[in-house]
Design a protein around this nucleic acid. Structure first.
Lengths: 242, 242
DNA sequence: CGGAATGTTGAGCTGCTTCAATCGTCGTGG
DNA sequence: CCACGACGATTGAAGCAGCTCAACATTCCG
């Protein structure tokens, strides 16, 4: 059954900034429906003029770019509450692709009504900008990690960040999190080769810091992982939800 | 003498989307003054709750993040028309630092009037989001290049991108561009060590593809440089100017 | 003129890459 | 129920791209 904005399960989470009644009402009207995609499906493709924008309700995906020679760089992991398609909304064209790595449920918004939001609901428009700026911030951190840290730190950082985000969404706890990513995805996220990613993970496993099998990630020694990452991950302020 | 929005020299450039009279009038009112900084000065610091946001009128800067161990990652080169401080505008805090690498002239906007823009000038608010999304796009490309390409391609790509952006701003032509960046900056931009950046540049020089001395960059063989970069740089659509 | 910042170069080392197998798991069709 | 194939994980081996260290040269600037 489709989720109604009124009882959106995400909105209740403390990670998301509260929304007043007028805003909720506006979003109900803005929302045109839901879209369900299956694991492996492409949600939006790079270069596409997407007709809709989405907020992830459930499931996970990957944003990625593909270079001319076919190399893939994963921009980030898409989790519930994340917004998809801001670029096509404002610039007209997607600059990256989004692929589902689990079945996903997306809240759909028609692109043609996006500008209307700026005309009638400034607070929501402001939140859209906020989200774009937040994404920019995350990307900057990501770039710094990939550009400046050695492999072990990159992998540790990626796992930490992934886990923390899930925990904030109440999708993980006690160091246990679902892990639909493949090692290939972690490699493309960290800018490492698949083989080296595997060996780096093995090292973490050997030292009993994390285990990862059967699509379940377990962090046994958070302190050691933080130590390994070098960079504490700490974005815990409430952010808007569209 | 301070630039008045009415005859803003940037607005005339074809890279920037046209602005109607009401928008210009709004910006005049939004603008609180100008700020001049000298080469080497810090414009805004990571973590700071900046009171103002800026559009670069003249001069160049670097956006960068510093990691715990002191490693610096340059996020991008700041050129005229670029907006500074979106993050402090929406999230309240800067997530990166900005340093001037030449003397700069900045158009200043008070942060407390930023939300007012969303209430009274939706088209400008939309453009702000556009800029944030554009920045996100550039950052994504940057991440892909740093994460997935070997050093020679990264350096070639960085030079190409830098030159193209300057050319669009009429600050470079015929393969000649001012180059206030240091090799250290290019290294921090591409995620390479200083020494290796130097050697990579030497190779380009040896093959007579580019020269760079006395703060002047010359691209002698654009085709060869594009070939070297692998990734053609091609964002030539008009973008908003705030 | 002297000191600091920037650029250049060589040498040696290692983190990471590519290549190449092998193995385990799971879904599918016979 | 088993065999097969596809996909993902794992591991070893060899090579090199890029790193650090260490000098030295050059330019900039007060």
């Amino acid at each position: 059954m489709a989720v109604d904005c009124l009882n959106c399960p995400l909105r209740a989470l403390p990670v998301f900034a509260p929304m007043d009644e007028r805003e909720v009402a506006f979003m109900r009207d803005f929302k045109s429906g839901e879209r369900h995609v299956s694991r492996g499906d492409v949600v939006v493709r790079e270069g596409e003029h997407a007709s809709h924008m989405y907020t992830v309700i459930e499931g996970m995906g990957l944003r990625s770019k593909t270079l001319p020679e076919g190399e893939r760089q994963v921009i980030n992991v898409l989790l519930p509450g994340d917004f998809v398609g801001m670029q096509s909304g404002v610039m007209g064209e997607m600059k990256h692709s989004v692929e589902a790595i689990t079945d996903m449920r997306l809240c759909a918004f028609p692109r043609e009504k996006f500008f209307g939001m700026y005309q009638t609901m400034p607070s929501r428009a402001f939140d859209a900008t906020w989200l774009a700026a937040l994404e920019e911030h995350f990307l900057g951190d990501h770039l710094a990690v990939v550009g400046r840290l050695p492999g072990r730190q990159r992998v540790a950082w990626a796992l930490l960040r992934y886990y923390d985000r899930l925990e904030q969404l109440a999708l993980a706890r006690n160091g246990r999190a679902p892990m639909p990513l493949k090692q290939r995805d972690v490699a493309d996220l960290t800018g490492l080769s698949l083989v080296h990613t595997n060996k780096t993970l093995r090292a973490l496993r050997r030292r009993n810091i994390v285990t990862w099998r059967q699509e379940v990630l377990e962090i046994h020694d958070n302190d050691a992982l933080v130590e390994e990452a070098g960079t504490p991950y700490q974005d815990r302020e409430a952010r808007p939800l569209l």
